[in-house]
Amino acid sequence: MGEQRDARTRPGAGSEAGGTVLRVVARELTAGDVVVLVLADPAGDRLRDWAPGAHVDLVLPGGVVRQYSLCGDRYDPLTYRVAVRREPAGRGGSAHVHDHLAVGDLVGVGGPRNTFPLVPAQEYLFLAGGIGITPLLPMIEQAERLGADWHLAYGGRSRAAMPFLADLPGDPARVSVHARDEGRRLDVAALVAAAGPQARVYCCGPAGMVADAERAAAGRPPGSVRTERFSAAAQAAPVRSDPFEVVLARSGTSVVVDASTTVLQALEGAGARVLSSCGQGLCGTCETAVLEGVPDHRDSVLDDAERAAGDCLLVCVSRACSGRLVLDV
């Protein structure tokens, strides 16, 4: 999702919201009306590890949360890079990033999570439409590092509107540019059909392009065509940045969690003994059953279906959408 996914309103959410907060350390406007942000921990600590295809949630002031693919260097543990295209028809998330978010500002971050992982293969075909190039950039770097055979077909309105084009290799055997104003249509069906049977196809772009890739997947081995859409799975409910109540079902006590504490800390403060390990939403040790209420998942562990089920919470990083959360503690 190089582009914002479906706008998800989270009234009241802002950079003061609990959870991980990172600082904007660099900001650059690039082709295609895209702002590239570099984020780092305010204390200079390592960020959570990620792999190509991963995205983070940005918790933006003005009450919106958006997902953006990580498009930087995973070998740099200190920064994340995301690219945000201005969406004139959007609900304010990208406009906020473009118009207000400045170097030095803090921004809430969830994840990273990876619903678009790069699987091992000798041959890759990457299909990008516009800002859909972003998750593919680290994939291309990885394919290159692995010595795999790869090709990128990159489509857009015009070369000037295609972000990161200048960063890609000029070798036409590697990268083919399909700019509509040059009359070079990106024929997804034909490219997928021409790909070798062992090739793994990764497509990220507008809905029509992704649908074309999914249609072209018919008849190919399962899992050989993988896509990422710009529209997000529906979020269960808006989240909150104001304090919420956590009820410890087994003891019947309750505790208020404000922006300055984690649910784990609050539970410990209430005398509960919840085991944790990594403290970063990575290992799953602190998973706790949710009996009532709606979780706000900020971890890197649960997949979309597990998140939607809403029956558990990684209390070291995750929070609440509802005003009250009853945990099996």
């Binding site: 790069l118 990885q142 998973e287």
Partner: peptide, 19 residues
């Protein structure tokens, strides 16, 4: 190490997850 480590780890993490 990454990147070779990525895919096997993702698979095994899921197979052995608390859920």
């Amino acid at each position: 190490d990454p990147p070779h480590h990525d895919a096997p780890r993702v698979v095994l993490e899921k197979v052995l997850s608390p859920r």
